[in-house]
Amino acid sequence: MIEVLGVHKSFGPLEVLRGVSLDVAAGEVVVVLGPSGSGKSTLLRTINHLEKVDRGYITIDGELIGYRRRGGKLHELKEREILKQRKDIGFVFQNFNLFPHLTALENVAEVAALSDARHFLERVGLADKAAAYPRQLSGGQQQRVAIARALATRPKVVLFDEPTSALDPELVGEVLDVLRDLARSGTTMVVVTHEIGFAREVADRIVFIDDGLIVEEGTPGEVLDHPVHERTRAFLSKVL
């Protein structure tokens, strides 16, 4: 479904991704763990071309993201074509990034028909908050609206960039419940998170990334309970 191959990305002199390859199957839930600054958010942002890669490529259902192959070269797509591709890739931000001047319903309806928008709000349990502005909602509710909005384009895959990191502890649960529900319904998901408990319960596969490279990957049992690599062990000992 998603194929990431040999992706490199630098910001100035700082090499954030140093050759990352990752396959995600349809319906699979992949949780990406790693220390801050390890490149996990950047990896996620390259998948929907919010960040351009320096080397390597990404395909979704075999379609090259952000580029077109012509002759022996990869030509960057026009912005209009990239925007069209992004409809297939839902993205949920750490800071929600809801549109503050639009109501919850209007936020979702910005990318879907009104009836669809209502349906997706209902799906995250916020049908009764349709008329509320983001500022009138709690952080957890805002993130759930953001998830409804990301689902509204009916994407093939949804990417979550630390969806609970900006939330008060008591609000984390309601957002994880929505994620759990999505995972159960067979949504293809890549989740960057620090919620180890959630990773253990929901992930089909855990990928541990450090210093721009995938250090280790496997089932939750393998990575969390029997980490092979020293760096994975050091990280887990800090967060578990």
Binding site: N48, L50, E79, Q85, K87, F93, F99, E110, A150
Partner: peptide
């Protein structure tokens, strides 16, 4: 906020509409 443009871009909202609506 920069995040507003990113969110609009991530949702695939066309450029002119991003400016006018968001």
């Amino acid at each position: 906020d920069r995040g507003q443009l990113e969110a609009a871009a991530a949702l695939g909202i066309p450029r002119f509409r991003q400016f006018r609506r968001i």
